[in-house]
């Protein structure tokens, strides 16, 4: 299965350097959301790497869908720590177990 990367060209360049070919640079919220929806339903993609800033700008429902998705697994990368998983755990178990 493939690894896909979605984000700004500056973000995706590093991954291209390491050899990833499934690069997506959609411009504008609409394009980003529709591209993500396509990737969510794709069978060949195992992991989608998304810039955490892009993740934060998404509507809640889409973010929840991405949190829940296991194939492909959506991973947010950023210079700040990503908290969506922490929220999911807190909602499911009722206690904030992170840290």
């Amino acid at each position: 299965m493939e690894i896909a990367v979605l984000g700004s060209p500056a973000f995706t360049l590093g991954f291209q350097l390491a050899g990833i070919s499934h690069i997506y640079n959609p411009e504008g919220d609409e394009a980003i959301q529709s591209e993500l929806k396509v990737l969510l339903n794709s069978k060949d993609v195992g992991i989608v790497v998304v810039d955490s800033e892009v993740l934060a700008s998404l509507p809640d429902r889409l973010r929840e869908q991405m949190s829940a998705s296991v194939s492909p697994t959506i991973l947010g990368i950023g210079t700040e720590e990503d908290n969506t998983l922490r929220e999911t755990i807190r909602k499911a178990i009722g206690v904030d177990l992170w840290k």
Partner: peptide, 26 residues
């Protein structure tokens, strides 16, 4: 830069596996 991104991708794969496993367990 190539090296560190290669490194990063390895770590991403590990983290993605763990995250997916955690979600299923949850």
């Amino acid at each position: 830069a190539s090296d560190s991104f290669g490194n990063l991708i390895e770590k991403i794969v590990t983290a993605a596996e763990m995250e997916a496993t955690l979600k299923r367990l949850l």
